[in-house]
Design a binder for these strands. Sequence first.
DNA 1: TTGTACGCGTTATCAT
DNA 2: ATGATAACGCGTACAA
Lengths: 426, 426
Amino acid sequence: MHEDRPRAPSSPAPAAQEGGKPEADTAPDARTAPVPEVTKGQHALTIEDIARLSGVSTKTVSRVLNHSSVVSDAMRARVEGVIARTGFVPNAQARALALRRNFLVALVHDGRDRGIAEEVEDGLLDAMADSDYALLVHRVPGFSPAPQFAPRRTDAHAAPNPDTVLAPLTRFIARHRPAGLLALPPLSEHPGLAEACTQAGVSCLRIGATRDGMGLAGPDRAAMAQAVSWLVAAGHRRIALVSGPETGFGAQAREMGYLDAMADHGLDRGPSLIEPGDYSRASGLAAGRLLLELSPRPSAILACNDAMAAGVLQAAHERALAVPGELSVIGFDDTPLAELTAPPLSSVHLDWRAIAAEAFARIVDPDRKHPSKQDRPLDAYAGYRLVERGSNAPLAPPAPRYRQTTRAPAPPPGPAIKTPPQHEAD
Amino acid sequence: MHEDRPRAPSSPAPAAQEGGKPEADTAPDARTAPVPEVTKGQHALTIEDIARLSGVSTKTVSRVLNHSSVVSDAMRARVEGVIARTGFVPNAQARALALRRNFLVALVHDGRDRGIAEEVEDGLLDAMADSDYALLVHRVPGFSPAPQFAPRRTDAHAAPNPDTVLAPLTRFIARHRPAGLLALPPLSEHPGLAEACTQAGVSCLRIGATRDGMGLAGPDRAAMAQAVSWLVAAGHRRIALVSGPETGFGAQAREMGYLDAMADHGLDRGPSLIEPGDYSRASGLAAGRLLLELSPRPSAILACNDAMAAGVLQAAHERALAVPGELSVIGFDDTPLAELTAPPLSSVHLDWRAIAAEAFARIVDPDRKHPSKQDRPLDAYAGYRLVERGSNAPLAPPAPRYRQTTRAPAPPPGPAIKTPPQHEAD
DNA sequence: TTGTACGCGTTATCAT
DNA sequence: ATGATAACGCGTACAA
């Protein structure tokens, strides 16, 4: 940074003088002599130190570290003993440089839709917990599917000004060279993303349904269809949907699931029962207001994510509608916020953590890294289930005449979180 | 990884043959010949390529990259032109190795209290957006202050089994060598954290108030006191508090702010008005239930974070208490979830993003990196304000019969989000 | 002001 | 099965 300047006042002393770190300086032989085995707080240990302490070459230590199958057991035990005693940890940067393969996984999002971001991040951290990998979190400006950044509507398929998202992302990749990249929706739906990553030499995993069908998606369509069926089984007939942005492919899958099930049950699925949102709470509130004004009011509203469902709850609150007494509300994704609403939100749980774990596995495992196998649907891995909290209930048996005051007959007291018939899609 | 094994089927071809990347192989001179200037999709460009393309030495390119002040303008222009044309980006790992200083900032948390984690993470990403740095997110097992992990209560000052948190963290640091480490509460209150980081050679910034007063804290105490004063000005007299875990120093600061203000206003601050929580929604719900059973019911409840405030909202919902009509609820931290509750939660906004930005600045800026200057209170940087959403209101004008007082003449109605007198603590 | 030789910590090649 | 040597990409000391 400040090379060639008169004098940098930061580091008090040159690193070479800091500790007693032995280096092959002029007379390497003199260094085989007494050296404190556990050199704490001084300069970091290197593989060379371990080699010297073990009386072997650096390459042998390297082999031990990399679990090479050719080292003899005796040698392995000796080296591992020294490593354990000294607490040596190999330097990830140096390994990355030599291997041309970094021990970083990048999670890339656009700063919105935090709900599933948390789930995926947690799942990744779980998966990486005992590995050598670390998690890089990166944010890019965000692109069209989100309405507030879409000044003018263009063809949904058109690449929306690739420079603002792809160019910075490419620079990020080139700079830090992560082993793999995980893109979160809606970024994962960016048309040029996969190719940009491939060109930059990192394997790209996209989370969520994508238009090319290669995203790491959960069974969105089936899950939403099942949610409708559950409501129907609970006596609901007039079931509305707050859909996602029509530019989003994942949102489309969920909407299709709704349409599937409504058709299967022979229910009215007129357009008025579907209000589009943009995954934000505000849009859910707006949609909820509209839906609750419908002439025969829906007795249940499904939302394509939890934030919009929270907005629907708010709309119900505004109209003094009892939830779940007079209105059932069900969200989607089962994000942490679902248990923070009042009442706690029932939600369709998709196992984003498992999907994240699978993504990590594909990045790390050379076999799965093969282009033909990576970044494709994951239906086999992730199930779904309805997590019932308190925002849904069976339709009250006594059909309401005009304003029959037979208030919700004390819904059956059950456990706060009930998980009815788990449907593992496999 | 798979060295010495018979044959690794992963990489189809040795890297050396992949592209036309010129290397000083046997006859370096032959390579000065025609080379496509923009070599896309092939092997990554190095500083050497840029040097050759610009007709200068690698060191000159390095100087340009590092904004050294000794390069001539002509030379700088030439090199920068080539860099821009080729889209070259320096390899962070190689720089880290040479500089012995990594371009990573680690954000470390224990997996809970996601609210402020998001804010801090966003603030960091903002601050790092145009820098060479990247954000590493790491999770450690979590330690005592959180009740569910505290099997038996010991002295709050005692180090709670350092091995489970410090040892893995030390390994993480040794492995990835971040330039700096940001610890989130409650991890930031871990007694041995700062020393462990210092020993490992990374600068450690702790977010939130710490017992030694060196954490990067906001004006928690003053902000909470002000929150009480705002409620008093709105006519409230019976104001309850859902406090944080008494082992947490940050939570203590907030509770003290409450006590300060209650005393200043000469109000009852008996222990029954304070219910302890653990920052979880469930604890807020439990505390809310208790507080709402009090004989003269509190007209306002403050919570030490937003999640607990959400629990209080739920408790009010259970008792069919109108919020804010019959009960005002105010949260703390102003996290994203505040606008997802019903009604949206008024909350005391602490500028965690600014605090995160300051933390990053201290990590990057060599001047601030000096031990005597780093990791100390930040009152001067962060202000606070009350973000009014919809969960608080003036006490209903029809005053109680006995205590007829001319208090609080219906504060002026304002916009949904009002930021009353900003108090910059400086 | 610019270039040369070497070090950073680790792994791969090729010998033994 | 193990070891010497040369990369990996970039920065620095020192020379020019």
